[in-house]
Amino acid sequence: MAKRIDVSGLNAYYGNFRAVEDISMTVEPRSVTAFIGPSGCGKSTFLRTLNRMHEVVPGARVEGKVMLDNEDLYGNGIDPVAVRRTVGMVFQRPNPFPTMSIKENVAAGLKLNGVRNKKMVDEAVERSLKGANLWNEVKDRLDRPGAGLSGGQQQRLCIARAIAVEPQVLLMDEPCSALDPISTLAIEDLIGELKEQFTIVIVTHNMQQAARVSDRTAFFNLSAVGQPGRLIEIDATEKIFSNPSVQATEDYISGRFG
């Protein structure tokens, strides 16, 4: 189920403003890759180019190549809708559909894919909720509104919704920044389990979190405000946090910058 991502020469623009400049990297399958860096360095923008969510912002466009195994996501005739079904995403703020029950939320993606068989949907809902470590907490109230859960539960519900459609890759944009430490721990444990099935890319501002959950870490930076963000280096997480090869990385992770 998991696929490798190969990015080469990627630039992302908002209108005329270049937000991300010339990024090339490889994301290994069945592993967790963390993106760290200061605000405005383009790591979220870059993340959103990986499932073609960047271009839903008016005026936004992308140049370059993103290969998912052997398929260029920005190739001719590639349907962005199909890309997003293969590359799932979890957002910063938990966003379960407010008008749907817990079960309907998890089944939303399946419904979009045309799965109508009730038994198959029920099985997928249970499997996904179990996969998101939420099943035991909600199994008796699947018909209650998803918005009635706590923030941490809502975020796990969103993860369940994302994995229900069995994507190849799961992108997470600061999934814990709106959560308390206990809920954060739950999500981090979950990420550790999910990487056995999925390729996971996570953006985080929390460097301890990057060190805890990721196998590889990419550091992004920008030379000045208004300048495009760049990839400074990507390496094994251990190496980035103990002995990075670029001075800027060391400055950032040790808190000496600016």
């Binding site: 499932n51 969510m53 997003r84 957002f91 703020r93 939303a108 979009l112």
Partner: peptide, 15 residues
Amino acid sequence: VPRMYEEAALALGAT
């Protein structure tokens, strides 16, 4: 309608 709900649907591969 908050942008985040529309993005939630988009990210699931909704037209």
